[in-house]
């Protein structure tokens, strides 16, 4: 199974991962439209962690024992048995934010743009390839193959 690997040793803290994540979650999915003054606000599910001269990107690890899935009160959050990806069925989510309280990585955000639902990294399932990885200029984000037990 494929996962995103974040390498603190080569991250330069440019924040392009967040920019492209926001583009992906904007209505237009177009970088020249997503940040226009009149564009609706958009969200990133990648965090850029910085302290001193250290930095790295963090996002959902699609845990093997996903506490967000176990805590979800609706069944909206699920782990796909085939791909191992943890995704939210936004039509079922009621915005109780239990997943946010459960996730030890702080990888789930509140999306209050259209109702109240959780938003998290789905590795750009619809797009086909994670946009943050594709646009990382320094290969601080790469795709790795892992085994889900």
């Amino acid at each position: 199974m494929l996962r995103i690997k974040s390498d603190p040793n080569v991250c330069i803290g440019c924040g392009l991962c967040r920019i492209w994540c926001k583009v992906e979650h904007s209505p237009s999915k177009n970088i020249s439209k997503a940040f226009k003054p009149a564009a609706p606000p958009t969200l990133s599910c990648v965090e850029l962690e910085e302290r001193g001269c250290e930095s790295f990107a963090s996002m959902c690890r699609h845990c093997e024992e996903p506490l967000c899935v176990y805590g979800c009160i609706t069944g909206a959050m699920r782990k796909d048995p085939q791909t191992g990806l943890v995704t939210v069925d936004r039509s079922k989510c009621v915005g109780c934010w239990t997943c946010i309280l459960m996730c030890p990585n702080g990888a789930i955000v509140r999306d209050e743009r259209n109702g109240y639902t959780a938003l998290k990294c789905d590795m750009c399932l619809e797009r086909g390839f994670p946009s943050c990885v594709e646009h990382c200029p320094n290969d601080a984000l790469v795709i790795e193959e892992v085994e889900d037990v």
């Binding site: 974040s6 962690e49 790295f56 699609h62 845990c63 506490l67 030890p104 702080g106």
Partner: peptide
């Protein structure tokens, strides 16, 4: 607070681990 504030071994587990050690 961010993951970056955590002690190195926990931080390593959070960003590269597989989240399997809860049970």
């Amino acid at each position: 607070l961010g993951l970056i504030c955590l002690p190195p071994e926990i931080r390593e587990e959070r960003i590269h681990g597989r989240g399997r050690n809860w049970l």
